[in-house]
């Protein structure tokens, strides 16, 4: 509920329109690349550069306003709500991919292999009579169209280590928060540094795992529904971890500069929330993609 203070309404700003343009150029470049237009990649790079410029500029403005003490408690609440609901939208984005995984395992593969006839009597009998259900699914209904892999990434190898890394990073970021609340700057920076490091180590391991899967196991995105769900889920997650780790690094940098106070450190919390979200998604991934 509103407080009586005057609400801060920013003056007109160029950042939103720069942001829009940068996204537009990025999408345009991407679309051109898909259509094999040579200039596409340059357009894409310009778009991404603009995007970075926009983020830097926009956040710089917000930071400056925040330091200048223009924000009331109420503005802070608006920011918090914004971040919270944004994370929910991200959850729903991942839900689509988890849904696809669930659907493939619970419905389409059983139907194709003749289990649980459902509404699809005859699918197995007349179309894919040699196909048998399995998970991970390595023999495709049409083996000619998709590549076979030698093996899949076992859960209790690098993925388990990665789970430990991310869980640990969830703990370290919380320690950092506690340190911040006690205004213990050294501890804050140390814990944050540990979190960033854990994040990047995770990404490093994940990249190694990808290389191993593609080169040694022949597991590619073209490997049927298993390869599709595996790479899309872990890929988008890896992308989010990378973004999260970069954001954490920025926060680390800012806390070294002394931007945050005991009471007022929303940016820190927002990134921490985001980090926890990435963490939880990984747990889902570990369980449903790698393990069972």
């Amino acid at each position: 509920m509103a407080t009586q203070e005057i609400y801060y309404i920013p003056e007109g700003s160029k950042w939103p329109i720069v942001g829009t343009l940068s996204l537009f150029v990025t999408f345009l470049g991407g679309a051109m690349m898909f259509n094999s237009v040579d200039a596409g990649k340059y357009v894409l790079i310009i778009g991404l550069a603009l995007l970075t410029y926009m983020f830097a500029g926009w956040f710089a403005d917000v930071i400056a306003e925040s330091i200048a003490g223009k924000y009331s408690k109420q503005v802070d609440v608006s920011f918090r709500m914004g971040m919270g609901w944004f994370i929910l939208s991200e959850v729903m984005f991942f839900a689509a991919f988890f849904g696809a995984l669930y659907y493939a395992r619970m419905f389409s593969i059983p139907w194709l292999s003749g289990e649980g006839q459902g509404g699809h009597n005859g699918t197995h009998e007349f179309l894919w009579s040699s196909f048998q259900a399995s998970w991970p699914m390595n023999v495709m209904p049409d083996p000619a169209k998709y590549t076979q892999y030698k093996d899949v990434v076992p859960a209790f190898g690098v993925p388990a280590i990665n789970t430990a890394l991310l869980l640990a990073s969830g703990v370290t970021v919380t320690f950092a928060h506690w340190a911040l609340k006690k205004a213990n700057r050294t501890a804050l920076s140390a814990w944050l540094f540990a979190t960033v490091a854990l994040g990047f180590i995770f990404v490093y391991f994940q990249a190694g795992e990808y290389a191993h899967a593609m080169n040694d196991l022949d597991l590619t995105i073209n490997g049927g529904i298993y390869g599709s769900t595996f790479y899309l889920l872990t890929g988008f997650h890896g992308f989010h971890v990378t973004m999260g780790a970069v954001m954490l690094a920025v926060i680390l940098f800012r806390s070294l500069k002394g931007h945050f106070s005991k009471k007022d450190h929303f940016a820190f919390e927002a990134v921490a929330w985001y980090w926890h979200f990435v963490d939880v998604v990984w747990l889902g991934l570990f369980i449903f993609v790698y393990w069972i």
């Binding site: 898909f34 729903m92 991919f97 194709l112 894919w128 209904p141 998709y146 995105i221 529904i225 599709s228």
Partner: peptide, 26 residues
Amino acid sequence: PVLAGGVTMLLTDKYFGTSFFDAAGG
């Protein structure tokens, strides 16, 4: 966001060889 996820899968099916919407790949 669910729609965004869905059309992303269309994109990967067309350009990256995934098989979300193709029975031949499960």
